[in-house]
Structure formats: structure tokens, C-alpha cells
């Protein structure tokens, strides 16, 4: 069985959307060290996305290319988790740089990298040798992203009254979106059947343990979940993705084929 393209796009879109989102901190970081850290995390994520898009384009053949996949698909064609396209703040506030909340950034990076260390670890045994090679590299990088975000999560949660309140608000806001990790999209199902992917559901106990341990150390509580489970990975996104892609894709669409 061959590698489902949509599964590669799911992994690639996750990485590129979060990479683009985190890059918004470049030049706006709360402190210089974090400005650089987030830029470096974004570079890793965009690098991972490039490798995955290249693999997808190779399998698609014809005139498919990493640039076409990143810049010339619309929001409904993106397969990323909804969690990763959300702005850096809670619901119902604007987009201005001044409204960005670093606790939201950190909590999201933590929740995602806590999943991806396990996903990449498992994908090292993928039947798709190219994907396995990408996973081996991505695992090393994601381990550092996890360390970074976990450190800050604990520092904020177990910090001042203000930092604790903001970290808890970010956890309350973002945790429901992680329910999307545990549903199975058609692409994921096909990838598991082809032994290209591992069943993410099986990773849930390890993810729960990692998250609960960090929240406990951070003196934060995990909210109970009830309600709508997002479906970004099948192309049903929040309104935020279009704005993000508008910024990311604008240049390539205004000047197709431009190089510099």
C-alpha cells in the first residue's frame, strides 16, 4: 500500500501553520532570548514542513512542488489541527501585536510538542522510509521544543499570581482543542492501515501522563472537556486560518515564481 498524500499534508500543514504562527513573535518577543527561541523553533517547524512537502510532491509527481503545496492551496485544503492556527490569545480579542499573550504561545507549543515527540518516535518505524528519516530528525528537534515550552509552563504556572492566572487561562482555552488529536481522520486511518503511520489513539496515555505531570508541577489544573471537537485535519477550520495563510501566501501569489 502506498503512502496517503493527505497524511503527509496533515503532518506538513501542522508544522508550517504553527511555524508561521510562532514566527509572529519575531521582533516582538517578550524578552530577547525568547524572541530568538521562538524564531528558532519556527525555523525547525518550517524545515520539517519543507521535508514533508517535498516527500508529498515526490509522490504526487507531475508539477507538484513544496512551494505549490505551501503557497497555492486554500484554507479548506489545509489538514492541520485547528489548535495550531489559533491566534496567540484567548477568544474574542483582536489581532494587534500588543494583545499577544505569551502564555497561550507556550501552552500551545507544550501541548503540541508533547504529542509530536511520541508521534515522531513512532514514525521512525514508518513503512515509508522517507517519512521515517524525517521523523528521526524531527524527533530530536521536537524534544528541544518540548523542553523549552515545559520549562516556561512550569515557570509561569508556579510563578506570580499574574503569570499563574494567564497560564491557567491559556490551558482552559486550548485544552479542548487537543480533543482533535484523538479522533481518526480518513487520511490517518489509511496511513495506519498502510503501516505508514502509528495509531495516535495509542499514544494518549503517554501524552496524558506527560501533560498531567507538567501541569501538576506548574500548579495548574486540567479542565474537564465537553463540547465540540474541532476538525481542522479534515479541512474544516476556524476563521483564523484564512488570515494566517493570507499573510503567508500573499507574496508568493503576488509574484509567482519569484526568487531572491
Amino acid at each position: 500500500m502506498s503512502t496517503p498524500i493527505d497524511y503527509l499534508l496533515h503532518l506538513a500543514d501542522n508544522a508550517v501553520v504553527l511555524g508561521q504562527r510562532n514566527a509572529e513573535w519575531c521582533g516582538h518577543g517578550p524578552i530577547l532570548e525568547e524572541d530568538m527561541a521562538l524564531a528558532n523553533v519556527s525555523l525547525d517547524l518550517i524545515g520539517q514542513a519543507r521535508l514533508l512537502y517535498q516527500r508529498a510532491a515526490e509522490l504526487m509527481g507531475g508539477d507538484a512542488s513544496e512551494d505549490k503545496l505551501a503557497y497555492f492551496r486554500g484554507p479548506h485544503e489545509f489538514r492541520n489541527y485547528t489548535l495550531l492556527e489559533l491566534p496567540h490569545h484567548g477568544a474574542l480579542v483582536g489581532y494587534a501585536a500588543a494583545d499577544r499573550d505569551y502564555a497561550t504561545t507556550i501552552v500551545r507549543n507544550f501541548l503540541y510538542s508533547a504529542l509530536m515527540v511520541h508521534v515522531w518516535d513512532g514514525l521512525q518505524q514508518s513503512a515509508d522510509a522517507s517519512l521515517a528519516a524525517i521523523a528521526a530528525k524531527s524527533l530530536k528537534e521536537t524534544s528541544y521544543h518540548l523542553h523549552h515550552s515545559r520549562d516556561w509552563l512550569v515557570r509561569m504556572g508556579d510563578g506570580t499570581e499574574e503569570s499563574h492566572a494567564r497560564a491557567q487561562a491559556a490551558v482552559n482555552h486550548l485544552m479542548p482543542y487537543t480533543e482533535e488529536f484523538w479522533t481518526t481522520s480518513p487520511a490517518e486511518g489509511a496511513a495506519v492501515a498502510a503501516k505508514v503511520a502509528i495509531d495516535v489513539w495509542a499514544l494518549r496515555p503517554a501524552w496524558d501522563a506527560l501533560v498531567n505531570d507538567a501541569l501538576e508541577q506548574a500548579t495548574l489544573t486540567r479542565p474537564n472537556f465537553h463540547g465540540y471537537v474541532t476538525e481542522g485535519k479534515i479541512g474544516l477550520h476556524s476563521e483564523h486560518l484564512s488570515y494566517l495563510l493570507g499573510e503567508m501566501q500573499g507574496l508568493a501569489r503576488a509574484h509567482p515564481g519569484a526568487t531572491w
Partner: peptide, 13 residues
Amino acid sequence: VTSEFGSTACKAL
């Protein structure tokens, strides 16, 4: 350690 990421991703400060 001052920061997990230094001037480049491969270095810590």
C-alpha cells in the same frame, strides 16, 4: 543555561 536556544537552533545560551 540562560536560554535553550541561542543565536542558532543548534546552540543554547
